[in-house]
Structure formats: structure tokens, C-alpha cells
Amino acid sequence: MTDKYISKDGLNGLIASVKASGGRFVAPVLDTRQVVYKEVSSAEEIVDDYILPRNSYKEIAFPQTEILAKYELTRDGVTIDPVEIVARDTVVFGARPCEAASLASLNSVFTWDFIDETFTKRQEKVVVLSLGCVDADDECFCTTVNLSPASTEGSDVALYETENGYIVTPLTDKGTAFVSAHSDSFTDVAKGEEKKELVNPEKVEGVDLTKLGERLAKSPNYDNPEWAELTRKCCGCGACTYSCPTCHCFDIIDEGTAFEGERRKNWDACQFNHFTLHASGHNPRDTQYKRYRNRFMCKFHIYPTKFNSTGCVGCGRCIRVCPVRLDITDLMTAMSS
């Protein structure tokens, strides 16, 4: 399919068309002084001056909390009713090219042997419209992990900003089908319509992903005291993992009364002390550096080698959100040597 065009005003038509077909249109909006992905009903709500929304749109396919089943305990016994997985057609407008790779990464975990349909059924219905970045901040480091504002991995449709609109390039079958289904909202690209220049964030000096991976793969480096020194300031909150587009850890818990309740799947974070705490009191990751090391291993060793996918997309959310400014790129540099 050839490139199409949509003006910023024309987005209203697209939103209406998506809604008319029963879908949701998710885009970056301003909420309580920060930019977040949220469902919108008009183009006016969408912000266009942003680096990255605070949240990752992974929550569309992997919500923070969801009910897996409802149970009831009566005199006659127990009943358990699985909750039907509701998957709605969802368009993510303005996703950044770096994080577009993330759903595929999550998919690699959620479909490893056993298939977690609570994720896959929703993921199938997500159409990602990524928007090339015309600005970057100090925390962006996609180029350091071999991605860039021009990356297309995980995007269904690539959008490139022009003076008054966007040039639309369908990339996947899903993307082509989306553009065709809402063809009234798009026009041909007018002559002279020019893409704004994409801005590459500076590459972090001294990071070598190959060396980094090799080093993490070796067991003797695991207990290197450097880990404790580099992560000493980590306060052990879950802000990084809950903002990260590829963090996949969760908890399964029961909530309710003695007679009825729900079994839920909730986000959880490997940064929490009780995450790996055994009932016996033993904790394999009993200090913060071990927990941070696990997160780092997950991104740069487990994801790439075990799941053959991108662990860190370089979006920089974990750096921006970190209340003690622990910078993952500092560890990447240190662990590359």
C-alpha cells in the first residue's frame, strides 16, 4: 500500500470512524500535569508536544489488575467461573517507535510453551500507530540499544509528522487492513508535504551490547561487588518496572470474603522484597542489589537469549521516573567493560 496522509484536524474523522466500528482510540493526553496514554473521543484531547507518555501502552493487553475467575463457596461446594476475556479493537495513536517493539517482547514471554490468552487475545486486537520522534530528551537512549526514531519493529502503521498532519505508512497486514477499513479518513499525500526531521538521541558512550550480554551470561560476574556499589542508592520501589514497556512480572491473588470472591492477576515487581520471599522466611534475593541485578539480567540477558526478543527498548522511562535517579545506562556502561 502506498503512503497516505491525514491532517491533524482529520484525526477527528478517524477517531469517529474507529469508534463507529466499536473500537477504542488511545492516544497521549494530558492528565494531572503529565502525558499519559488514554482513550480519547476527539483530536483536541491529543497532545503533540511530548517525548513519551508516562505509562506504557502494554496495559491495554496486560492490565495492571484483572479478574481471572470468580468463585463462590456454598454449603454444597465450590464453583469457579472463569471470566471471559474481553478484547476490544484498540488503536494506539502516537506510540513511540522505541516502545513499539515491546508488545512482541511481552508476547514472547506470554506464549512461551503455555499460551496466556488473557494477553494474546487482547494483543491481537491492538493496532499500533507509531509516530517518529521529532524531539528527544536527556533520558532517551533508543540508539544505544540499536533502535531509533525510524524503527518500525512492532508498529503496524508508521506515522511521520508534517507541518499540519501526518504521512501514514502501513507496515503490516494489520496496519494495511486498518488504513483500508478507515480509508475515508485518509487522503493521498499532497505534493510538497514534507516529513519533519527525526531526532536521534545521542548514543551513550561506552555501551557495547554484545560485551554486556557476554558478561551477564557468565556466572562468576554474578556476584561481583560492583553490583552492590552501582545500585546502592536504589530505593526498591516499583516505579521503573511499572513504567517499563517490557516488564512482565505479575502476582495471582484471591480477593473477597469467605463466601465469594475473585482470583486476580496483578502487576508485581521484582524490585519488591517480598516478591521472592518464601513462606519459610528464606529469600533468594534478600538485598536490593540482587533485585536490581535480576531486573538488569532480565532486560539484557534473559529477554535477548532466552526469548530472543528485545529486553530494553531505550525509552528512558525508568530513568525519568526514578526518584533517586538511578540511571540504567550507567550500569550498561559499567557492565560493558
Binding site: C235, N266, N273
Partner: peptide, 24 residues
């Protein structure tokens, strides 16, 4: 309602020094 239960509030508070918080 926006709370994401990341417990950054607790972790940044020097007076939240319990090793096992009530929520755990």
C-alpha cells in the same frame, strides 16, 4: 484511583522503615 501501587511513596519515606509493610 490513579495509584499504580509502585510503593515509591513508602520507599522514599525514611519513616516507612518497616521491613515488612502492612500491605505485605
Amino acid at each position: 484511583n490513579r495509584c499504580i501501587k509502585c510503593y515509591a511513596c513508602r520507599q522514599l519515606c525514611s519513616l516507612c522503615y518497616c521491613e515488612r509493610c502492612i500491605t505485605e
